[in-house]
Amino acid sequence: LYHVLGLDKNATSDDIKKSYRKLALKYHPDKNPDNPEAADKFKEINNAHAILTDATKRNIYD
Protein backbone atom coordinates (compact mmCIF):
# COMPACT_ATOMS: atom_id res chain seq x y z
CA LEU A 1 0.00 0.00 0.00
CA TYR A 2 2.89 2.34 0.64
CA HIS A 3 3.96 2.06 -3.00
CA VAL A 4 0.46 3.15 -4.11
CA LEU A 5 1.07 6.45 -2.34
CA GLY A 6 4.73 6.59 -3.38
CA LEU A 7 5.97 6.25 0.20
CA ASP A 8 8.12 3.94 2.30
CA LYS A 9 7.23 2.17 5.56
CA ASN A 10 8.73 4.98 7.63
CA ALA A 11 6.23 7.53 6.31
CA THR A 12 4.63 9.79 8.89
CA SER A 13 0.91 10.47 9.01
CA ASP A 14 1.61 13.91 7.50
CA ASP A 15 3.52 12.28 4.62
CA ILE A 16 0.59 9.95 4.00
CA LYS A 17 -1.90 12.81 4.07
CA LYS A 18 0.15 14.98 1.67
CA SER A 19 0.73 12.17 -0.79
CA TYR A 20 -2.92 11.14 -0.67
CA ARG A 21 -4.15 14.67 -1.40
CA LYS A 22 -1.75 15.11 -4.29
CA LEU A 23 -2.64 11.77 -5.90
CA ALA A 24 -6.37 12.06 -5.19
CA LEU A 25 -6.49 15.38 -7.04
CA LYS A 26 -4.53 13.92 -9.95
CA TYR A 27 -6.65 10.76 -10.35
CA HIS A 28 -10.06 11.98 -9.19
CA PRO A 29 -12.82 10.72 -11.54
CA ASP A 30 -14.17 14.26 -11.98
CA LYS A 31 -10.81 15.34 -13.40
CA ASN A 32 -10.57 12.22 -15.60
CA PRO A 33 -14.16 11.52 -16.71
CA ASP A 34 -13.25 9.34 -19.70
CA ASN A 35 -10.45 7.37 -18.07
CA PRO A 36 -11.49 4.17 -16.27
CA GLU A 37 -7.85 3.50 -15.31
CA ALA A 38 -7.79 6.76 -13.35
CA ALA A 39 -10.95 5.70 -11.50
CA ASP A 40 -9.32 2.38 -10.57
CA LYS A 41 -6.18 4.17 -9.43
CA PHE A 42 -8.31 6.55 -7.36
CA LYS A 43 -9.94 3.56 -5.62
CA GLU A 44 -6.50 2.09 -4.87
CA ILE A 45 -5.34 5.43 -3.45
CA ASN A 46 -8.43 5.69 -1.23
CA ASN A 47 -7.98 2.14 0.02
CA ALA A 48 -4.31 2.72 0.84
CA HIS A 49 -5.15 5.97 2.62
CA ALA A 50 -7.95 4.35 4.65
CA ILE A 51 -5.67 1.59 5.91
CA LEU A 52 -2.51 3.62 6.47
CA THR A 53 -4.25 6.42 8.38
CA ASP A 54 -5.96 4.00 10.79
CA ALA A 55 -3.35 3.06 13.41
CA THR A 56 -4.83 -0.38 14.08
CA LYS A 57 -5.18 -1.29 10.42
CA ARG A 58 -1.70 0.04 9.67
CA ASN A 59 -0.15 -2.07 12.44
CA ILE A 60 -1.91 -5.15 11.09
CA TYR A 61 -0.73 -4.34 7.56
CA ASP A 62 2.85 -3.71 8.67
Score class of each variant (00 low, 15 high):
1 L>A: 11
1 L>F: 15
1 L>I: 11
1 L>D: 04
1 L>P: 01
2 Y>F: 05
2 Y>T: 06
2 Y>I: 00
3 H>A: 10
3 H>V: 02
3 H>E: 11
3 H>Q: 11
3 H>I: 04
3 H>D: 03
4 V>H: 05
4 V>M: 12
4 V>I: 12
4 V>F: 05
5 L>E: 10
5 L>C: 00
5 L>Y: 02
5 L>V: 00
6 G>C: 03
6 G>D: 12
6 G>R: 03
7 L>V: 11
7 L>A: 07
7 L>R: 02
7 L>F: 01
7 L>D: 06
8 D>C: 03
8 D>L: 03
9 K>F: 07
9 K>Q: 08
9 K>L: 06
10 N>C: 07
10 N>R: 03
10 N>T: 12
10 N>G: 09
10 N>V: 01
10 N>W: 05
12 T>K: 04
12 T>F: 00
12 T>H: 06
13 S>E: 13
13 S>Y: 09
13 S>G: 05
14 D>N: 10
14 D>E: 12
14 D>A: 10
14 D>P: 06
14 D>V: 06
14 D>K: 09
14 D>I: 11
15 D>R: 01
15 D>A: 12
16 I>F: 12
16 I>A: 06
17 K>E: 14
17 K>H: 14
17 K>F: 03
17 K>N: 08
17 K>M: 11
17 K>Q: 12
18 K>R: 10
18 K>Q: 11
18 K>H: 05
18 K>W: 08
19 S>D: 03
19 S>G: 07
19 S>K: 05
19 S>A: 13
19 S>P: 03
20 Y>L: 03
20 Y>I: 02
20 Y>N: 07
20 Y>S: 11
20 Y>G: 09
22 K>S: 15
22 K>D: 15
22 K>C: 09
22 K>V: 15
22 K>P: 08
22 K>T: 14
23 L>A: 04
23 L>F: 03
23 L>V: 03
24 A>L: 11
24 A>H: 07
24 A>K: 12
24 A>Y: 15
24 A>F: 15
25 L>P: 09
25 L>Q: 13
26 K>I: 15
26 K>M: 13
26 K>Y: 02
26 K>Q: 13
26 K>V: 10
26 K>W: 03
27 Y>W: 15
27 Y>D: 06
27 Y>E: 12
28 H>D: 14
28 H>S: 15
28 H>C: 07
29 P>V: 05
30 D>G: 10
31 K>S: 03
31 K>F: 05
31 K>I: 12
31 K>L: 04
31 K>Q: 12
32 N>S: 07
32 N>D: 07
32 N>A: 06
32 N>Q: 13
33 P>Q: 12
33 P>C: 06
33 P>A: 12
33 P>V: 08
33 P>S: 11
34 D>S: 05
34 D>A: 10
34 D>Q: 09
34 D>F: 00
35 N>W: 06
35 N>V: 08
37 E>N: 14
37 E>H: 13
37 E>R: 11
37 E>V: 14
37 E>D: 08
38 A>F: 09
38 A>R: 07
38 A>P: 02
38 A>G: 09
39 A>R: 13
40 D>Y: 12
40 D>W: 14
41 K>G: 04
41 K>H: 15
41 K>E: 06
42 F>G: 07
42 F>K: 09
42 F>M: 15
42 F>I: 10
42 F>R: 10
43 K>D: 13
43 K>V: 06
43 K>T: 14
43 K>F: 15
44 E>V: 08
44 E>K: 05
44 E>I: 01
44 E>H: 04
44 E>Y: 01
44 E>G: 03
45 I>R: 02
45 I>H: 01
45 I>L: 13
45 I>Q: 04
46 N>S: 15
46 N>F: 12
48 A>K: 01
48 A>Y: 01
48 A>G: 04
49 H>W: 10
49 H>V: 11
49 H>A: 13
49 H>F: 14
50 A>L: 05
50 A>F: 02
50 A>N: 12
50 A>T: 12
50 A>K: 11
51 I>M: 10
51 I>W: 01
51 I>V: 14
52 L>K: 04
52 L>N: 00
52 L>Q: 02
52 L>C: 00
52 L>W: 04
53 T>F: 03
53 T>K: 13
53 T>S: 11
54 D>M: 02
54 D>A: 09
54 D>V: 02
55 A>G: 10
55 A>P: 12
55 A>N: 11
55 A>D: 03
56 T>F: 03
56 T>G: 11
57 K>P: 02
57 K>I: 03
57 K>W: 00
57 K>C: 01
57 K>M: 04
58 R>E: 14
58 R>G: 09
58 R>Q: 10
58 R>Y: 02
59 N>D: 08
59 N>F: 10
59 N>K: 11
60 I>T: 14
60 I>K: 15
60 I>N: 15
61 Y>T: 14
61 Y>R: 13
61 Y>G: 15
61 Y>H: 14
61 Y>I: 10
61 Y>M: 08
61 Y>V: 13
62 D>S: 04
62 D>E: 06
62 D>R: 04
62 D>Q: 02
